[in-house]
Design a protein around this nucleic acid. Sequence first.
DNA 1: ATTTTTCTTGAATACGTATTCACAATATCA
DNA 2: TGATATTGTGAATACGTATTCAAGAAAAAT
Lengths: 338, 338
Amino acid sequence: MAERVTSSDVARRAGVSQPTVSRVFTPGMRVSPKLEERVKCAADELGYRPNTLARSLITGRSRTIGLIVAYLDNPFYPEALEKLSLALKERGYHILVFLAANQAEEIDPVVEDLLAHQVDGIIIASVGISNKLTERIHREGIPLILFNRGQDDRRLSSVTSANFDGGRRVAEFLVAGGHTRIAHISGWQGSSTGRDRRTGFIAGLKAAGADMIRCIDSRFRREEAMEATRRLFSATEVPDAIFAGNDHMAFAVMDTVRCELLLRIPEDVSIVGYDDVSMAAWPTYGLTTVRQPANQMVEKTVEMLLARIEGDATEPQKLEIDGPLIIRNSARVPEGWT
Amino acid sequence: MAERVTSSDVARRAGVSQPTVSRVFTPGMRVSPKLEERVKCAADELGYRPNTLARSLITGRSRTIGLIVAYLDNPFYPEALEKLSLALKERGYHILVFLAANQAEEIDPVVEDLLAHQVDGIIIASVGISNKLTERIHREGIPLILFNRGQDDRRLSSVTSANFDGGRRVAEFLVAGGHTRIAHISGWQGSSTGRDRRTGFIAGLKAAGADMIRCIDSRFRREEAMEATRRLFSATEVPDAIFAGNDHMAFAVMDTVRCELLLRIPEDVSIVGYDDVSMAAWPTYGLTTVRQPANQMVEKTVEMLLARIEGDATEPQKLEIDGPLIIRNSARVPEGWT
DNA sequence: ATTTTTCTTGAATACGTATTCACAATATCA
DNA sequence: TGATATTGTGAATACGTATTCAAGAAAAAT
């Protein structure tokens, strides 16, 4: 019933050879205007479209990028996904999406799957990859980029924001605001992103002669962040400022602080997040947060990826993009802060 | 550099023929245990994986589903995407994702693109499709399902929630709650989802002898919903209840009502949404809303799709799944409401 | 007008796998 | 044991396109 129409069918109807049809549909190939018109006409009548699979089999490139992403409940990733999809579409690439549902899930088989699909490149957002697979991918020469996640391997490229600096800047901001009992609800310490923000934060506090009263790893999870908040406030020494490892957790903290503990923000406690997802600007939250410049991050990711796919094999590189602290109403603003 | 390893390479090394290698990697084909072991061993040593493209070219099925989705800023869709991806992965299918960034965008070329990629089926979430393309897809016999969106065409299958009933139920709930100045900020009236909820709502009001004081189409957009809210409250007759066409807009309404207009919810005005995204349960919002049973919707979508792909061609059908009204704190609860 | 060059086109082939088909080898039965 | 049924395997081919390669037509140069 699904009677496929092939280039040969078109050729027959247009009275030309199959290669001619192929040339008509291959950008950059020259065909005489007369034949081109005849072929296009016949193709339209038959409803012909080149079979991408067969084309990819020949050329060795599928114009498809594999994307692995987790944490879709954190709005940063849908936003990034949207931008990535758009940027790649503009350049004629498609996206094969895999969701690494839970953190613990092994992504190696997923990557194997992508390789079997002959993707031209791979973007991995917010998850890590095993050494064995890194080796394999490196050998096969297929470009891979870690998005919003670094990994200590010379062969891997990554694009992140300047997480250490961001964490440090938050520390300076909170100390300057006169906070004395500062706590941190950190992102997953098994991830570079979570670690860098934390170490940057600690370094910033130390440089200012301050310290944290408490640090709880809530692994970027809402429920854990809520639980951590309760723990923080059930201790004898109650925090007057909390830095959350990302916005997603910061919202959880704010919800808990306001609705369960019935405290005011920022009068009783200041909250700072990380990412600047669009929700952070919603008036209900008005979250002070470090912006991850998603547009630039995506742009650079795509750029690096395509450079390695189409151009000459560039060296792997780790890119860190700086992002500003966006000041809103969830944290006390120091006097005369610029 | 990217030295591909093919089934022939494996065959040579294992001392067998290429078809034998193929059989080893084709489930359901029988090969003697001895050879199977030899082949698997050789394959491992060489790092061989069957080339999905070549395989699909032969079999005519790519085990890939095309997914078109818009409105990724409405958390309902990332949630649905995640569930869809998971359900399809379990059944051995992959997802080729296309984002129809803005509403107005023509999705026809996108579908054409999917067809060229030989997808086995197509899921379109929250967007419509032209008659011409419907005809074409119907002719080619490739299964297509509209998700969370209906369309008046006998040839199209769709899975939605019972939007009319949902709207009606909200009306009954608000009237029973004693509201007398009820307004509706509707979803896009160009979509069945937006229309059905609205007409159901109106029908429910009418049945209860009530009426709307105002209805504004905010096309599922946050900004427009905020603007609509301001308009509602700048009129002489101010609403005491607002039904928003989905949760995404309901949050916008709540933000505006509380932070700009400085009114209390639900004391001054009741707000009801539609979808029951996970955010609706966040204590800050506690949104009373009609649940779209996303799990069931996804399950049914996948089931219908695969039935048409793998099984005998079933007739197109339009499925409506009922969802309950979830009562939280954003709307006054009628006395003795069950 | 003849040679050289450029441009078009078609015949043949390759991409990597799945699938007949025929044949050899083994197992089953009388 | 001989005939038949049953596997298991390899040679050949097909899937739909892109890409040599050689040849023919047209244009440019002599």
